[in-house]
Amino acid sequence: MSNPTATPTTLAYRHQVAVSAATGDAISKAAWMCFGSGDKAYSPDEDVALVAEFARVPVVCVVKGSVLTVRGNLTGIQAGDNVLREFSVETESGVMMGRRVVKPKQFEPTSEIELDLDFEY
Rank of each mutant, 00 (worst) to 15 (best):
M1I: 15
N3A: 11
P4N: 07
A6C: 09
T7A: 04
P8C: 05
P8G: 05
T9R: 07
L11Q: 14
L11R: 13
Y13K: 05
Y13Q: 06
Q16A: 15
A18C: 09
V19H: 06
S20G: 15
A22M: 15
I27E: 02
A30G: 07
W32Y: 12
M33K: 07
C34K: 04
C34H: 08
C34S: 10
G36K: 00
S37N: 04
D39C: 02
A41E: 05
S43P: 03
P44W: 00
D45I: 09
D47A: 02
A52F: 03
A55K: 01
P58A: 12
V59Q: 04
V60F: 10
C61R: 14
C61K: 14
C61P: 10
V62D: 15
V63L: 13
K64R: 15
K64F: 12
K64H: 13
K64D: 15
G65R: 10
G65S: 11
T69E: 10
V70K: 03
T75F: 06
I77H: 08
A79K: 01
D81T: 13
N82Y: 03
E86T: 02
E90C: 09
T91E: 07
E92F: 13
S93D: 15
S93A: 15
S93Q: 13
G94S: 09
V95P: 03
G98E: 00
R100V: 08
R100F: 02
V101F: 00
V101N: 00
K103T: 12
P104Y: 03
Q106R: 12
P109G: 09
T110N: 13
S111N: 10
E112Y: 11
D116M: 08
L117E: 01
L117S: 06
D118M: 14
F119H: 06
E120Q: 15
